[in-house]
């Protein structure tokens, strides 16, 4: 049986079609989910794609959090269903408190759009099992509210529990506020995220959020020709087949 991966569309979501395509390229069935529907159509996993849901009004992800579809997703995520939040989807996951911390305006105040080098810090999540610990990948990054922030004790806890899943990598990734700036060739911390954090997971490892965009790097024909993003989607398929 083909695994069913739901892709949520909020008003203002941009990357739902690319995400559906990535799911299909990985070999699963992509199931469109509408923000007003509580029903998840028996999907096995959910992706919250990027964009500007509700125009980023109030705060990025703050209003989407209260949509009917999120009520069911929060419930299911707590019961172990794999959930991936990409960019705006990551912001929604922090607003729902499924993931700790919050996203702030980039410290350089630029909208940063570039291929971004990342280090996969752990393969022990539902969405990173097909990578190896410490593997470096490169996928597109595009946002202005991408500066990950959390209290020091929360950051310590994330590190101690192995829940920092992705870090911005390459020369210049020194965690310094100001980062490497938007034009530094895809290396280093693009936005002042604390401890170079690009993505994190919940304690169980089924909920993962990150700012860069794996769904834009799944086919050699487009973008930089790299398919480093495909591993996210094949990872969750393996997990679902094994379950």
């Amino acid at each position: 049986m083909t695994a069913r991966v739901g892709v949520v569309t909020f008003p203002g979501t941009l990357d739902d079609r690319d995400t559906q395509r990535a799911v299909r390229v990985a070999g699963a069935e992509a199931v469109p989910l509408w923000h007003r529907d509580k029903d998840l159509k028996q999907v096995d996993a959910v992706v919250l794609p990027g964009g500007f849901s509700y125009g980023d009004y109030l705060r990025a992800g703050a209003i989407s959090r209260f949509s009917p579809v999120m009520e069911t997703i929060i419930e299911q995520a707590k019961a172990g269903m794999p959930v991936l939040g990409i960019c705006n989807g990551f912001q929604v996951l922090t607003e729902t408190h499924l993931l700790p911390g919050a996203m702030l305006r980039n410290d350089n105040l630029h909208f940063v759009c570039r291929d971004q080098k990342l280090r996969v810090e752990t393969s022990a999540t539902a969405w990173t099992a097909d990578f190896t610990d410490g593997q470096e990948i490169s996928i597109p990054l595009k946002n202005i509210d991408g500066r990950y922030t959390a209290a020091e004790r929360v950051l310590d806890e994330l590190e101690a529990e192995g829940r920092v899943v992705f870090r911005y990598a390459g020369p210049g990734a020194d965690g310094r506020a100001g980062g490497a700036g938007p034009t530094a060739g895809g290396y280093g911390n693009p936005n002042g995220s604390l401890r170079d954090i690009a993505g994190i997971s919940n304690a169980a490892g089924n909920v993962v959020g990150l700012m860069p965009h794996p769904e834009h790097a799944v086919e050699p024909l487009i973008g930089t020709g790299r398919t480093d993003g495909l591993g996210f989607f094949t990872s969750v398929l393996k997990k679902l087949v094994a379950a």
């Binding site: 703050a62 209260f66 700790p100 919050a102 702030l104 922030t149 959390a150 209290a151």
Partner: peptide
Amino acid sequence: TFLANTVI
């Protein structure tokens, strides 16, 4: 719960 995000 809504107007402010008390994390930040």
